[in-house]
């Protein structure tokens, strides 16, 4: 590990100025991902600016049932917060499905969103990886491909974004509050992360030195009736093969109920949380049944690219999306 200068930030604007002025500097929050990358040689900053003690650790209510979440709210505290458990169950469920009890106690809201891919080649400095070392090539293409993206990938990168929280926030149309050298701006959650294109080294649309300070959620009936379904290789403490965040509003009851509105976002399938708007369009106004969900998922995955190793993902999405919507409808979908 190369020499590291440590700076403890006492003020958000100073932290932003310090990182923005130094291309070799990085923000450090809890470190559950960055400290690992320092050890592995995946991240090699000369300076870390520790933002974990900035006073941004509150969950505040907003008018209309919304919440404003400070970037330093720990994953555990966000998952168990009464406003989140009641108003945004998909957010609680996504957090509780992620990592372990210890890591959730440590990891922060902003850090969770900005964690990097778990693509095995990205984390192995002995192999080429365009995300870690631009222009070196992609070892995942033609290599171990079980976790690879099926939507929006490029010839440069097939990595997936690992955050569960980000998927729930994308479905519920959260906004990320970002502080930069020129002041504050708000970024829709669906536009925080980007597709790889020719620049997989850039996970997000943030400029160097921009700091996530808050996440804001607006209360809604869709958020009240929302959930998160995650499919893993083992029952707990693993990243998603695929995951589904869903919010649902129905007109009517029972099997005749018609979808008034729906939100769907998928994890484990793309370089960013994948908001499934084509699937939502198919479902809106339709009776909620298995055939409609299948048609909706198929519409969204029509352009999916799979290999023999990740060809299971579209079918798994159909199952997981059906399970999520069935849970929200409170009945099996025939």
């Amino acid at each position: 590990m190369k020499e590291l200068t440590y700076v403890r930030a006492t003020d958000a604007a100073e932290a932003v100025a310090a990182v923005a002025a130094d291309p070799d500097a990085r923000f450090l929050a809890a470190g559950t991902n960055l400290v690992d990358h320092l050890k592995l040689g995946v991240a090699t900053p000369g300076t870390v600016v520790d933002v974990s003690r900035l006073p941004l650790a509150e969950v505040e209510p907003l008018d209309g049932g919304g919440v404003r979440i400070g970037t330093n709210v720990r994953n555990t505290d966000l998952a168990v917060h009464p406003l989140v458990r009641h108003g945004f169950p998909a957010v609680s469920r996504a957090l509780l499905a992620g990592a372990s009890g210890q890591i959730r106690n440590q990891a922060t809201t902003g850090g969770n969103l900005l964690q990097r891919t778990r693509c095995v080649y990205f984390q192995d400095v002995t192999t080429p990886c365009n995300k870690r070392e631009p222009g070196s090539g992609c070892s995942a293409i033609g290599g171990f491909g079980r976790y690879d993206a099926i939507l929006g990938a490029s010839e440069a990168c097939v990595a997936t974004h690992p955050s569960d929280l980000a998927v729930a926030l994308a479905a519920l149309e959260a906004r990320v509050v970002v502080l930069g050298p020129d002041g504050e701006r708000r970024v829709p959650m669906t536009e925080l992360h980007r597709l790889p294109g020719h620049h997989p080294e850039r996970d997000t649309t943030l400029a160097h030195g921009e700091l996530v300070t808050h996440v804001e959620l607006t209360g809604s009936d869709l958020a009240l009736r929302s959930t998160y379904v995650k499919v893993r290789d083992r029952a707990s403490y693993a990243f998603a093969l695929v995951s589904v965040a869903a919010g649902l509003e129905l007109d009517g009851d029972g099997e005749d109920a018609v979808v008034r509105d729906v939100r769907l976002a998928w994890g484990g399938v793309a370089h960013k949380p994948w908001r499934a708007t084509a699937a939502e369009d198919v479902l809106r106004g339709r009776p909620l049944d298995a055939a409609a969900v299948r048609e909706a998922v198929d519409a969204e995955t029509r352009d999916a690219t799979t290999t023999t190793e990740n060809a299971y993902k579209p079918a798994m999405l159909r199952g997981a999306t059906t399970a999520a919507l069935a849970a929200l409808a409170g009945r099996d979908l025939a």
Partner: peptide
């Protein structure tokens, strides 16, 4: 609170 010590500076 329970906490890992390996992923912390």
């Amino acid at each position: 609170r329970r906490h890992l010590t390996c992923l912390a500076l």
